[in-house]
């Protein structure tokens, strides 16, 4: 674990430098531990693939005192009660009008559409982070056979529910938005609800399996 300052109000705690399930599990543990402390000095915690970024309240505490506080509290991390990861099945309509990049993914991979779908639906993905947009899950790890680079120029708009690939990740756009990932399908599952808690259907550590419909 390395501690870095991020601007005036941020602390970035780095756990690794690759997309890795073990690193992610360490981050998940630390994130739920920090959350359970309900420290009034913490405004927000953003866990992701390799780090936890903490937005702390610099009106309440100085950076150095905050670091000491974090380090001291770490002693009790093993007492944390981690929520059980949930498993979600997400139905997807692949290709055609639902997946404008399916053709590209097939030709890039040298596979047929049926093979791409077979590969995408046969992996159990882990949610590594939620962010970018509310409820957007960054999931991995994608089978190398369907590794796909991002679009050079992002699309200005993809519809809500679009399922995309980027390198070894897969994700779902909860809202119509600009998108740099390659879209291969669409789901009707609602990933975010501003009207009720928890707002995000998925949370870090959950697993997802896609089903072709």
């Amino acid at each position: 674990m390395e501690f870095w300052r991020y601007g005036e109000d941020g602390v970035r705690i780095v756990f690794g430098n690759t997309i890795d399930l073990e690193v992610s599990e360490l981050i998940r543990k630390y994130y739920f531990f920090l959350k359970s402390l309900r420290l009034e000095e913490i405004i927000d915690i953003i866990p992701s693939f390799t780090s936890c970024l903490i937005h702390y309240d610099s009106r309440r505490i100085s950076f150095s005192d905050f670091l000491s506080l974090l380090k001291k509290r770490m002693e009790n991390i093993d007492a944390v009660c981690l929520p059980e990861p949930r498993t979600h099945k997400i139905p997807v309509r692949y290709g055609g009008e639902y997946g404008p990049d399916m053709e590209f993914v097939c030709s890039y991979a040298g596979l047929t559409e049926a093979e791409v779908i077979e590969i995408h639906t046969s992996t159990v993905y882990t949610v590594f982070a939620i962010g970018f947009l509310p409820g957007f899950p960054y999931m991995g790890i994608l089978d190398k056979r369907i590794y796909t680079p991002r679009l050079e120029t992002p699309r200005l708009k993809v519809p809500e529910g679009s399922v995309g690939l980027a390198q070894l990740q897969t994700g779902i756009y909860p809202f119509e938005s600009p998108a740099g990932w390659r879209i291969i399908g669409k789901t009707r599952v609602r990933l975010f609800d501003a009207g009720k808690e928890p707002h995000s259907l998925l949370r870090m550590g959950d697993t997802v399996r896609f089903m072709a419909v």
Binding site: D44, I130, G131, P134, H199
Partner: peptide, 8 residues
């Protein structure tokens, strides 16, 4: 504030 972990 307080909801960045859900991407908000």
């Amino acid at each position: 504030y307080g909801y960045a972990d859900a991407g908000i």
